[in-house]
Lab assay of single mutants.
Amino acid sequence: MGFKLLSKLLVYLTASIMAIASPLAFSVDSSGEYPTVSEIPVGEVRLYQIADGVWSHIATQSFDGAVYPSNGLIVRDGDELLLIDTAWGAKNTAALLAEIEKQIGLPVTRAVSTHFHDDRVGGVDVLRAAGVATYASPSTRRLAEVEGNEIPTHSLEGLSSSGDAVRFGPVELFYPGAAHSTDNLIVYVPSASVLYGGCAIYELSRTSAGNVADADLAEWPTSIERIQQHYPEAQFVIPGHGLPGGLDLLKHTTNVVKAHTNRSVVE
């Protein structure tokens, strides 16, 4: 069995187990497998329904001669939608809004960016022009300005110390501490036991640490421990890039980060 097929099978099995364990909360999309990078042309966006009122959005972007996937989250909030992270750029984010209108038909009224990198804030200006209120932590807003990236308009308070959590509509926002970046936030959907790890969490097929220019490698494993301790009931975990899975993604990420750190020390 090929690795790609095995990865998709694991996603399907995880979703099936969740649907059985929580039949009222989960209505997993039966329309197909989780979209992969090879299936999404740059400039297009796919939506994948995880649970009743919960979707991931998947886009792709060219970077350094390669094409990478990027995940975000959409959560229903009454007759409105909360968006977590842009679709990595203005063109993708405009396509995301169009796809949401086509498939869901509810307005996106608020959006949260989970850290300051372009795959999370690139497209904020498109959201703002569409009347979406954009939010991020003060740290993310400051770092985005320093980096020359787009800056969300509103500040999220109460997320300055490791372990801080605040309720934001249908989700809980959690600051686990520094990891992929010093400002990275985690998003949890309690009604569906869905954990969105953003770039602080890796997919299972990833074996290298990737972009760690703004990471705190020493603190990252401790931050992941905080996530595990705060959300032990999480059933569906979405990484910032690639295929979702279960809580095993947290341990896998820790292993990859520690291996990278150990290699760096040896070198």
Results as ranks from 00 to 15, higher is better:
residue 10 L to Y: 08
residue 210 G to N: 15
residue 83 L to S: 12
residue 118 D to C: 14
residue 230 H to F: 15
residue 48 Y to T: 09
residue 145 E to G: 09
residue 125 D to V: 05
residue 63 F to V: 07
residue 180 H to Y: 02
residue 248 D to C: 07
residue 115 H to R: 00
residue 196 Y to N: 02
residue 155 S to I: 15
residue 252 H to S: 08
residue 164 D to I: 11
residue 254 T to S: 10
residue 230 H to Q: 07
residue 170 P to N: 15
residue 89 G to T: 10
residue 46 R to G: 11
residue 152 P to Y: 13
residue 16 S to Q: 04
residue 241 H to L: 01
residue 147 E to L: 06
residue 145 E to V: 07
residue 174 F to W: 04
residue 139 S to G: 07
residue 120 R to G: 09
residue 229 Q to G: 06
residue 239 P to W: 01
residue 4 K to V: 05
residue 266 V to M: 12
residue 206 R to L: 10
residue 211 N to W: 13
residue 230 H to G: 08
residue 92 N to S: 09
residue 160 S to E: 08
residue 24 L to M: 14
residue 59 A to H: 05
residue 78 G to F: 03
residue 127 L to R: 01
residue 165 A to N: 14
residue 254 T to D: 11
residue 35 P to L: 06
residue 70 S to M: 13
residue 187 V to P: 01
residue 146 V to M: 12
residue 187 V to W: 00
residue 47 L to Q: 06
residue 138 P to G: 14
residue 204 L to D: 13
residue 90 A to C: 09
residue 248 D to V: 07
residue 21 A to R: 08
residue 207 T to V: 04
residue 16 S to D: 08
residue 88 W to L: 01
residue 107 P to E: 13
residue 99 E to S: 15
residue 69 P to R: 08
residue 186 I to D: 00
residue 68 Y to R: 10
residue 222 T to W: 05
residue 2 G to Y: 09
residue 249 L to P: 00
residue 251 K to Q: 15
residue 76 R to Y: 05
residue 183 D to A: 01
residue 82 L to T: 06
residue 71 N to H: 04
residue 21 A to D: 14
residue 24 L to H: 03
residue 191 S to Y: 15
residue 253 T to Y: 02
residue 267 E to F: 15
residue 118 D to S: 07
residue 98 A to I: 00
residue 207 T to F: 04
residue 174 F to P: 01
residue 19 A to P: 07
residue 167 R to D: 05
residue 132 V to M: 15
residue 117 H to P: 00
residue 151 I to G: 10
residue 71 N to I: 04
residue 265 V to T: 13
residue 51 A to P: 03
residue 241 H to A: 01
residue 73 L to A: 07
residue 99 E to G: 10
residue 103 Q to R: 10
residue 35 P to T: 03
residue 159 L to E: 02
residue 237 V to D: 01
residue 190 P to T: 11
residue 100 I to T: 07
residue 215 A to H: 07
residue 197 G to P: 10
residue 202 Y to V: 03
residue 266 V to R: 12
residue 136 A to D: 01
residue 97 L to T: 14
residue 13 L to G: 11
residue 142 R to D: 15
residue 81 L to N: 13
residue 158 G to I: 14
